[in-house]
Design a protein around this nucleic acid. Structure first.
Lengths: 200, 200, 200, 200
DNA sequence: GATGAATGAGAATTCATTCAT
DNA sequence: TATGAATGAATTCTCATTCAT
C-alpha cells in the first residue's frame, strides 16, 4: 500500500520540524560552532545523511531555524497584544508576554528568544549575523512605543534611544540568564521594576 | 654568552601579554570555538608554535585570559569607588565606571567586560563555564549594595534578587551591544535611567 | 532504500579487518610511534578519516590489534597440541608449532608473534605495555610444562624459572630475527637444539 | 681568569659524555622515536640548544651513542677473555661476562647491550638500522667459536648456524627482559642451561 | 525517503631544528 | 660555551559534506 502524496508530505514536514527543533535546541545551548550535524541527528535518532536530505548545508539550517522557529516566536510576543491601548499598557503587555515566556518551562520558546537576541554572541563574525537584523523589528517597535508613551505623558522624557537600548539590553540579558540557569532557578524581575525605567 | 635571565623574562612577559591580548580580542569578538590558534598567531605575527611555547593548550589560554586580562578589568570597576558613601552613591559610581568603560574607545576593556559577562553564551556546556562563576563576585556585591540602599531608605522595596537580576542582565546586554556595534555607534543609557529601577 | 543492516555490517567488518591488518603489519615492522595513521590508510587505499570512523584513536587501534589479531594467533600456537602427552612431547609440539609459524611465509602470523613478544621494546613506557602482560599466559604455561617434565623425569633439575626465562627469551629473539631478516633468510634452530636446554 | 684550552676541552668532553649517556638511557628505555631532545636536555639539566651545539641532529646523536657508548660496551664483553683456551671455555667466559653484565645493577651497561641487540626493534625502518650491522661482529665471533668447539670435540654437531642463531636470539631476549623488568626482578639463566644447547 | 560509509579540508598539538645574543 | 625564543613541517583528530544503495 503505497503512501499518498499527502502522507509523504506529512512525513517530510514532520521530519523537517524535528530537525529544526533539535537544531534550535543545540544551537541555543551549545552555540553554532560547537553543534555538530551528528549531534542534531542523534537528538532525533536519525542518520546525519537525512539532515542533508532536507537541508543542503549546516548554514542553511540556521537560516531555517530563524525562519521557521525564531521568527514565529518573536511574532507571538506581539500577538494578542492590544495595540490600541495606551503605549504604557502595550509595553507592559509585551513585556509581560516576554517575561511569561521566560518564566515558563517552555524551553523551545526560551531557546528561540535567546537565539533571537544573542545569536551574534555565539558567533560574531559568521554568516549568522545577517539574520540578526531581524531583531531590528523588535527594537524599532520598542522605540515607537516609548515615543508614543512620552506623547501620552506617561514616560519620562529621557532619551528614547537610551531607554530603548536599556530595555533591549535588559531583555537580552534576561533571556540569556534564563537559558543558563534553567526554568527553576531563573530569577525574573517583575515588569514593575523594569517599567520604572520609563514611567514617570 | 646567552641573554641574561632578566632579558629572557622580559621577552617572555611581552610575548605572553601580546598573545593574551590577541586571544582576548578574538575570543571576545568571534567566540572561543571560532577562534583558531593560527588566527591568534597571525594577529601578533608569530607562528602558532610560539603560542604553544607559552601556553600548553588552547584551553589554558582562555584560563590565562581570565586570570590576567579579565579579572584585573573587573577589579578596576570597583577600584576608586568610595564604599563609605551611601549605597546609592556607591552604586551610581560603580555603574558610571562601567558605563564609562563601555563608552570609551578602550576596546580591550570592552572585550574583557563582554567575556566576563557573556562567555557562557559562547559555549554553555564547556570548561570555560568554570571561569564564569567569578562573575558571582560582581553579582553578590550588587546584591549587598541594593540591600544596603534599602536600609538607608533610598531604594524601592521590591525584591532585591529581582532588582539585582535586572541590573546584571542590563549590564550584560549593554556590554554585548557595545562589542557588537562598536565605539561609535554604541548607545549608552545614562545611569539615571538605570538607577530609576531602584530609586524611590 | 538504504542498504540492509547486514550489508552495512559486512562492509564494516571487512574494513575493520583491513585496517587492523595494515596496522598489525606496520606496528610490527615500524613500531607504534613511527607508524602514522596516514601510512595505515595508504596501505589499504582509504582516507585517514575512515580509520577514525572505525577506531576512535590511534591507541585504540593497537588495543584492537591485540584483541583481534594477536590474541587469536597466540591461541593457535597451543591449539591442536595434545596436552595429555608427557610434558616433554607437549613442549616439543608447542615449540614446533611456533617454529613452523616463524619458518612459514605467513607474515601476518609473524607480525603478530613479534608484537606479542616484543611490543614492549618499541616503547617501554607507553600504554601499550598494559597489553603485553597477556604474554604472561604463554610464560606461565611454559613454566607449568617444565615443572611437569621434571616430575616425569625427562627434564634436568635446573631452576625452572631460569629454564623458562631462557626459553622465552629465545622465542622472543627468534620472532624478532624472523621479522627482521624475512622469510627467506631466517635461520631457524631445530627444536632439538632448544630442547637440549631442558632434556636430560 | 680565562680557562685554558685544556679546561675547555675537558668541559666539552664532560658535556658530550653527559648528553650521550642521557641519550643512551632514553633511547634504550623509551625508544628512539619517543625520545625528544627536550627530554635528553632535561635529564642532564641543560638547554636543548646545547645538544645542537655538540651534535648536529638527533640522528647523529644515535650514531654517536653507538660509537662511543655501545661499541665500547660490546668490546668489553670480549675483553679479559682468554681466547687461547678451548672454544668451550671461551664461550663460557663470554657468556658469563654477558650474564654478569645483565645481572649487575650497572644499568648503563644494560642499556647499551639492549640497544646493541635490539635497536632494530625500536625502529625497524630508520637510519638507525645501518648501525645494527655492527652486531655482526658479535654474531660472527660466536659462529667461529662454535665451529672451533666442534673441531675440539666438545660441541654437538648440529648446524652451526642454527646454534648461533639460537644463542644470539637468547641473548637478545635476555637483554630485553633485563631492561624491562629491572635489576631486581631479572631472572638470569645460568650459563649451564644455555651451554647445554651446544655441549655434547 | 533514508542510511551510513567514505572523504578531505582544517584544527590542535608536537618537536626537531635554527639563531640571535 | 650556553640559552631559550622562535619556526614550521608533520601528526592526530574532527566534522561538514558527498554518494551509492
Amino acid at each position: 500500500m503505497p503512501k499518498t502524496k499527502e502522507q509523504f508530505e506529512a512525513i517530510r514536514q514532520e521530519r523537517k520540524d524535528a530537525i529544526l527543533n533539535a537544531a534550535l535546541y543545540l544551537f541555543a545551548t551549545r552555540g553554532y560552532d560547537a553543534t555538530t550535524t551528528d549531534a542534531i541527528a542523534a537528538t532525533i535518532n536519525c542518520s546525519h545523511g537525512l539532515i542533508y536530505h532536507y537541508f543542503p548545508t549546516k548554514e542553511s539550517l540556521i537560516d531555517a531555524v530563524f525562519e521557521y522557529e525564531i521568527r514565529p516566536i518573536s511574532r507571538k510576543i506581539f500577538e494578542n497584544v492590544n495595540f490600541l491601548q495606551k503605549a504604557k499598557f502595550v509595553l507592559i503587555d509585551v513585556m509581560e508576554a516576554f517575561l511569561r515566556a521566560l518564566k515558563s518551562n517552555n524551553d523551545e520558546y526560551v531557546w528561540g528568544l535567546h537565539l533571537l537576541l544573542n545569536l551574534h554572541v555565539t558567533s560574531l563574525t559568521n554568516p549568522l549575523m545577517k539574520q540578526v537584523d531581524r531583531k531590528r523589528n523588535v527594537h524599532n517597535r520598542l522605540l515607537e512605543l516609548i515615543e508614543r508613551g512620552k506623547e501620552e505623558g506617561d514616560f519620562k522624557l529621557s532619551s528614547t534611544k537610551e531607554q530603548g537600548a536599556a530595555l533591549l539590553a535588559l531583555f537580552k540579558g534576561l533571556a540569556h540568564n534564563r537559558l543558563k540557569v534553567g526554568y527553576k532557578k531563573f530569577i525574573c524581575p517583575s515588569s514593575d521594576i523594569i517599567m520604572s525605567m520609563l514611567l514617570k
